[in-house]
Amino acid sequence: MTWLNDTLQGIFVGGGYALTAVGLSLMFGVMRLVNLAHGDLAVCATYLVTSMMAALGVPFLAALLLMLPLAFAAGAVLQLALFDRALRTGPLAPLLVTFGLSIMIQNLLQQTYSANVRGVPAGSIDVSAAHLGGLVLPGLSVLKLALALVVIGGLSAALRFTGWGRRVRATSDDVAIARLQGIRVRPLFATVTGIAIAAAALAGTLGAVTTGVYPTLGTLTLIFAFEAVVIGGLGSLWGTLLGGILIGVTQVLVSQVSVPYATLASQLLFLLVLVVRPEGLFGTGEAAGQATGAEA
């Protein structure tokens, strides 16, 4: 029964990774942009929530809800100001620009908030838990997994069934021709990045309730999110969810044997997938081309 509960906890952990990763997956799939500042933006949002709680005296959930539109706006502005231009400059530019952004954010946060770990007081959501036989259902973890399902399900449906989603997919297929159909690509990409950053901000803030937040947390956040995207397969949001869950379950199960090896095990899982199946478990041929640089 313990291992069953451990697996369940791993799925919860993975739900959190997937919620962070879904934005990375979306931007990667639509714009072929690997946003190396993805985790740092999530960490930024977490600090913003703690600052708002302190400054405005509002409870955690209110600050979280206030933060989301700001995160969306920040993502849209970054897309318009930096990422669009980076995508036009050349294949290496997005990596260089987003990595530069990541270093800037980390050092800004360090200067503003110090390098210490800061707690995120979330009140009652943090401690609530239900028990079901030998299984523990922590309220926060259940919430994160549920949000991952809602966000991924909602995004998949929006991409599949709405005009916005159709335009996003068309632009992803062929930017030049999409423009000739009257699609304004810049605002469209701005909404995509806005959604991606808002989802990451939500996941990062909820995640920090358990772990606390510190300026360089974004590095590990990015790595786990990237691993979830790659293991799941580029262009598949549901694949990203499964990728996140695989990482989470691996970490929790290994940590039962040896805590220091838990993270290492998930990194090795990622490298294994890259060697055996670089297009990911649910990826397409196009994903393989993206991974290896060959034309799809």
Partner: peptide, 19 residues
């Protein structure tokens, strides 16, 4: 032709957003 290959035929026709 340069269709959007991952979209269905009908979705391709629905893409133009010229109002």
């Amino acid at each position: 032709r340069r269709l959007f290959p991952s979209l269905t035929a009908e979705e391709n026709i629905l893409v133009p957003t010229t109002g």
